[in-house]
Design a protein around this nucleic acid. Sequence first.
DNA 1: CGTATCTTTGACCAAAGTCAACGGCAGTGG
DNA 2: CCACTGCCGTTGACTTTGGTCAAAGATACG
Lengths: 248, 248
Amino acid sequence: MLQDETLAHNHHCGDCPIRHRAVCARCESTELERLEEIKYYRSFEAGQTVIWSGDKMDFVGSVVSGIATLTQTMEDGRTQMVGLLLPSDFVGRPGREGSAYDVVATTDLVMCCFRKKPFEQMMERTPHIAQRLLEMTLDELDAAREWMLVLGRKTAREKIASLLSIIARRDATLNLQPARGALVFDLPLTREAMADYLGLTLETVSRQISALKRDGVIQLEGKRHVTVPDFSRLMEEAGDDADGGMFA
Amino acid sequence: MLQDETLAHNHHCGDCPIRHRAVCARCESTELERLEEIKYYRSFEAGQTVIWSGDKMDFVGSVVSGIATLTQTMEDGRTQMVGLLLPSDFVGRPGREGSAYDVVATTDLVMCCFRKKPFEQMMERTPHIAQRLLEMTLDELDAAREWMLVLGRKTAREKIASLLSIIARRDATLNLQPARGALVFDLPLTREAMADYLGLTLETVSRQISALKRDGVIQLEGKRHVTVPDFSRLMEEAGDDADGGMFA
DNA sequence: CGTATCTTTGACCAAAGTCAACGGCAGTGG
DNA sequence: CCACTGCCGTTGACTTTGGTCAAAGATACG
């Protein structure tokens, strides 16, 4: 276990892998120093719940590494994922007491946390933080609206293709994949989590993945390792018109 | 037609009906004066498109009166509503060129507009505006996530009940309805628009409204005028656990 | 090995979509 | 004033998609 290392408080923001994308992206070095004073790291194991819906949140923070999900649950147990948190994404809502959602670590997870009160105070005095948070929130809102189209109007097959293309695209930008040819990535989610993401049952997810494989849209190695031989074909299956401009 | 009146440029922000809820809510009088210099009003008739998806937006603004919708459309014509804009809601995204969605006036509509560039400049110098916009954006994000649960996991009947309860609740807060007893309101949307909101067909919307009427959950007068004799019953039908605390 | 978790697949069913006809109402123009 | 037209909404018959229930395969872990 390397948790001791990841938990260490003496990481320097300058070396931080999410330095240029997180809520602190626009901060200058003096601002970073002040953030550094109120920050601390927390690690979570895969499967652990970071925050329960309704609980009081005494911190906010950024995902440094790993993946977490934001989910809502109805009393009868139906659940819908409403957010997928990747490195650099922000957790928590300044100016609000409790969490509206369950936050669960899907993989092992490291978060850079700030106690809520000091962070809120700092936000008031540091426009760079508020500006960046606004920008990130607007991006999230756009993503949520895109997702609403998926949930409301796409077929099961299109939903799966949409999810795969989102994950593939993200992976390509993070890991600087060759911009041409086959995309290769690992699914960070179980079939059940994909179902909760897409408003389907896990059986339907499984069937549609098998169908996409049968039709040559994707190749599978094991349950989780995916190869996409032709990305524009996948986009077509997702019902997304333009080829996204990724491969011109 | 009173359009001349609503179009007049000499409204004072102090008298504005959305003064305390819109993006300008936190501004002080000197800040309001400067906003006043760059604002202008625009009116749209019911059915008119305010902005086309992909178009360049040279303004941002607030809905003053009337209702507008934000919709996304796939090439084959499937459409999903992704936002319902009520008085005080903000339209447009600072720091981005084009609109990602169609904005359509559902009723006659008056908007308070600001040219984008001056507004963006003012935002940088006026933290009160950026703060309020962040707060509003976070609220919208919460609403979008609530909506995702509706789209992904609720049955047709629950979806209709959810929409009715949202409209009823909004109407109650706006028009200070008696906090007890029957709620009465008008549907601001056609069956088709409701279908686009909920990811259903208009036939299913019609059938489920008829069913809720048959079961006594709602009463209808004409096509659009709704009476809800027992709000907690409607909440139950929506699959929303708590009684919302509205009627303690 | 045996147990637990995740996944796949099949048979059947139910909810919502599709296609089509029709009813009501408002506006228009003869 | 009435007939005509267009839009909105309702309802019915039938189809399709995805959900439900059940069994069994794969993989990892102790």
